[in-house]
Simulated assay, not measured.
Amino acid sequence: MNRTSSGFTLVEVLISIALMGITAVSILGLHSISLQNNIISKEIIESTVITKDIMENIKSQLVNGNYKTSEMIAYYEKKYPESEISIKKDFSKGLYEKGILYEIEIKVFNIRKGSTEIVVSKVYIPNKK
């Protein structure tokens, strides 16, 4: 037999298949980690959007004087059952003599396992004359 053939031996083929398999496993591992990170990011964005939506709606309703605070809290806690809303009035003297300072705190629970999104904001409503 002539030993000058230019083909691959069985050992070379097996080694190249093993190297491709190791590479494929590591790439699939990176893909699954990326997928998990995307899911967590989506959950964080959803909770942030929910809290910001509630906050902006409450602020606009307070400014316009459309609702009582207890009605707003009941409405949004019904709409978002995983939320807890508190609205506090500050009638301090000085800067706030001509209006009311509201402190709004919104907590949205369990968007992500064991997490709570908390947003606190203050809005000053001048007295209408």
Rank of each mutant, 00 (worst) to 15 (best):
M1C: 02
R3Y: 09
R3G: 01
T4I: 08
S5M: 07
G7R: 04
G7D: 04
V11D: 06
E12W: 13
E12V: 12
E12G: 08
V13K: 04
S16I: 07
S16K: 04
I17S: 07
A18H: 04
A18K: 10
A18P: 01
A24V: 11
A24E: 06
A24K: 08
V25D: 04
V25R: 00
L28C: 08
L28V: 09
G29A: 11
L30Y: 14
H31M: 15
L35E: 15
N37F: 08
I40S: 03
S41L: 12
K42F: 06
E43K: 15
E43S: 11
E43H: 11
I45Y: 05
I45A: 11
S47C: 06
T48R: 10
V49I: 13
V49P: 02
I50P: 00
T51G: 12
D53F: 14
M55G: 01
M55Q: 02
M55D: 04
E56L: 13
E56K: 07
N57Y: 00
K59S: 09
K59I: 15
Q61G: 03
L62A: 11
V63W: 02
N64D: 05
N64G: 15
N66Q: 10
Y67K: 03
T69P: 00
S70W: 03
S70H: 02
Y75P: 03
Y76R: 01
Y76C: 04
Y76L: 00
Y76G: 07
E77Q: 15
K79L: 14
K79W: 00
Y80G: 03
P81W: 04
E82Q: 15
E82D: 15
E82K: 12
S83H: 10
E84M: 13
E84Q: 15
E84N: 12
I85P: 02
S86Y: 04
S86L: 06
F91D: 09
L95G: 07
Y96K: 04
E97H: 01
K98F: 14
G99T: 10
I100A: 03
Y102K: 09
E103G: 03
E105F: 06
K107P: 00
V108N: 09
I111F: 06
K113L: 13
G114I: 01
G114A: 08
S115D: 11
T116E: 08
T116F: 05
E117W: 09
S121N: 13
S121C: 04
V123E: 07
I125K: 14
P126T: 14
P126C: 09
